[in-house]
Computed example of a mutant assay.
Amino acid sequence: MKMLEFDGLELDADPDVTADLLLFRKHFLVMNALYRLEPVLYEQGYELSISALHIQLHALENRTVSAQQVLAKPHPLRSYYLDWSEFEKSSNAYVQKLLDSFWRRYFSDHRIEEACQVLGLEAGAGPESIRQAYRRLAARHHPDRGGDAEQFRRVREAYELLMA
């Protein structure tokens, strides 16, 4: 990523390019190169594991299928990063939209996890389990029954979030 700053690439030729857009473009170029390198390495007996935070090369023990067979399986990230139009349409607004979407999902997942904890449930609990946990905890914490009003509010909010 650092080398892309000095490689003469004009990723930020437009003076209005934000730091987020510049970072997106660098990241896209790196991921595009990795996904293009993946089949070459596979044919040489290596598997390239690619994720946003971890890239690792593994030697393959027994290769029984070709790179085309392995890479023919649907892989949304590979498809995204190999689609050059995604890079071409990148703009400040496009990247801001991606970031906003990420943060909404991130906080949503976090809130769902917290709601499950409040109700004493495992992630992915079904509606009936959620209802039963809510009824049990609402009866225990309801202020009209001498319970804690703040805890009752948290239980109700958790129930509403999980049932939405």
Rank of each mutant, 00 (worst) to 15 (best):
E38N: 07
G147N: 04
A139V: 06
A138I: 06
N92P: 08
P39I: 00
K2P: 00
P143I: 02
G8A: 09
R111H: 12
E10Q: 14
S51N: 10
A67E: 08
S66R: 10
S101A: 14
P39W: 07
L37Y: 04
R105N: 12
E113S: 12
M3A: 11
D83Q: 08
F152C: 11
A139I: 03
D83G: 02
L22Y: 15
S90Y: 04
D109N: 14
A139L: 11
Y159P: 00
A115K: 09
H142N: 14
Y46A: 00
W103G: 00
E150S: 03
C116L: 07
R104V: 14
V30N: 03
T64Y: 13
L53H: 04
G45F: 13
L121G: 07
F28I: 05
G8F: 10
P39R: 06
Q69T: 07
E43S: 08
Y81P: 00
I112H: 05
I50Y: 03
A115L: 14
V17W: 09
L23E: 09
W84T: 11
T64R: 15
M163D: 00
Y134G: 02
K89T: 09
E128I: 06
S108H: 14
Q68H: 06
L98C: 04
L23H: 10
I50V: 10
D100F: 05
Q68L: 06
T64I: 14
R25T: 03
L22T: 06
R111N: 13
R135E: 11
L53C: 00
K89R: 15
S66F: 06
L82W: 02
L37K: 06
I112Q: 07
T64W: 13
S90E: 03
F87A: 02
Q151W: 05
S79E: 15
P39C: 01
S90I: 05
V155S: 03
S49I: 05
G124F: 15
L161S: 05
H141R: 09
L71I: 06
S85H: 11
D7P: 00
G45E: 12
A115S: 15
D12R: 09
G146W: 09
K2H: 11
E157I: 02
I112N: 02
I130Q: 12
A149V: 14
L11W: 08
L71Q: 05
A52T: 09
A93R: 13
A67K: 07
L57R: 14
D100S: 13
Y106Q: 09
M1Y: 12
V95L: 12
H27Q: 13
Q132L: 14
D20T: 04
L98E: 08
K2E: 13
Q68D: 11
L53K: 12
N32P: 02
F6Y: 14
H27C: 04
H27F: 15
M31T: 01
Q56P: 01
G120N: 10
P15D: 12
V118K: 02
E47G: 02
L29A: 04
Y46P: 01
V65D: 04
Q132A: 15
F24N: 01
S108I: 01
A33V: 04
L99V: 05
Q44A: 14
